[in-house]
Amino acid sequence: MMNYKQLYYFWNVAKHGGVSRAAEQLHLTPQTISGQVKELAQSLGVDLFIQSGRRLKLTPAGDLVFAHAEEIFQTGKALEARLKSRQHHSELLLRVGVSNVVPKSIAFSLLSPALQLPSPVRLNCYEDRLDALFAELAIHNLDLVIADRPLSADTGVKGYNHLLGECSLAFYGTPELAETVKPDFPMSLDGAPLLMPGPDSALPPALERWFGDMDISPQIKAEFDDSGLMKAFGQEGVGLFPAPEVIREQAARQHGVVIAGVTTAITCRYYAITPERRLKHPALEAISRSAQDSLFKTRVETSP
């Protein structure tokens, strides 16, 4: 295993341009620094420096080692700063990744209980594609990922799925467009203008199967990776759009759209994906409890 003290000495020599300057900065003798760097080079089996006049110059192997050392020690400084900030503010930090296909109102409803705990919680929220969020989860840069699908084994990322809740799927649109669909829903979707979530969402395969079973063919006007952009187009009357039934109030308030119809044949599910099996963080416990007791508690009996 690499000796990180030796790596630290090497990093300082490379950064300050010589053994003597590094020794001054570290308050050590040049002999100590030089001996430790030589031992590091021997353990790695490469030459790290070559003499260039009165200065030491990094070899190509030395450049590679220095680049990695720079990253290692900068990460260490960032960790120290984060811990000091956390102690100073005496608050819990929760780093959350939200899939870009999860409706913003769902994300807010799920996360807001974390901000209502007796102990202060500071949220760091990131929105991105699910594969990018899983990569951050794998290196423990995130405490939680909120997604509309579980983490599958073939991603190669170690994580645990916690089902937060589920609800029926609704089709939303402007009041005028919704009225044209309501009387004979869902058969009235045949030929109706429809906005679809992109392939990152769990919905498209389920919708395609359902359309096939019902023998209906909506007119697909556009596809969107971002749920907020899809709603913006729906607000302007471009087409109907599918979204969870539980956001009906927020959708009406924020976008002026209403439900044209609801189907129980397709279920919207939302997951908290964590690097640990148990939800140990108090904020995670609050999120899970509130989702099951409040947000997803009521299921609406609707058409097939």
Rank of each mutant, 00 (worst) to 15 (best):
M1T: 11
Y4A: 07
K5N: 10
K5F: 08
Q6C: 05
L7K: 07
F10K: 05
K15I: 08
K15L: 15
R21L: 14
Q31P: 11
I33T: 13
A41V: 09
L44S: 09
D47A: 13
I50Y: 09
L56S: 06
L58Y: 05
A61H: 14
G62Y: 10
V65S: 02
F66M: 13
A67D: 11
A67L: 11
E70G: 09
E70S: 13
E71T: 11
I72L: 14
T75Q: 14
L83E: 15
S85H: 13
H88N: 10
E91Y: 06
L92S: 01
N100E: 14
P103L: 01
K104M: 08
K104D: 06
S112E: 14
S112K: 13
L115P: 12
L117Y: 12
D128I: 08
A132K: 11
F134N: 01
E136N: 11
A138W: 02
H140P: 04
A147C: 06
R149K: 12
V157K: 02
V157F: 03
K158A: 04
K158H: 03
Y160G: 01
L163D: 02
G165F: 02
E166P: 07
S168K: 06
L169D: 02
P175K: 08
L177P: 03
P183S: 11
P186Y: 11
A192G: 07
P193V: 01
L194V: 08
P197G: 01
M214E: 15
D215V: 09
S217W: 07
P218T: 05
Q219N: 15
A222M: 12
F224K: 07
D225P: 01
M230R: 07
A232F: 09
Q235N: 15
F241G: 00
P242S: 04
A243I: 00
A243D: 03
A243S: 09
I247V: 08
R248G: 00
G256Y: 00
I259L: 05
I259N: 00
V262I: 13
V262R: 05
V262D: 04
A265D: 15
T267M: 12
R269G: 08
Y270T: 01
Y271F: 15
I273L: 10
E276Y: 13
K280W: 09
K280A: 15
K280N: 15
P282T: 13
A283E: 10
L284M: 15
A286G: 10
A286W: 05
R289H: 15
A291F: 07
S294D: 10
F296L: 03
E301D: 09
S303N: 14
S303M: 14
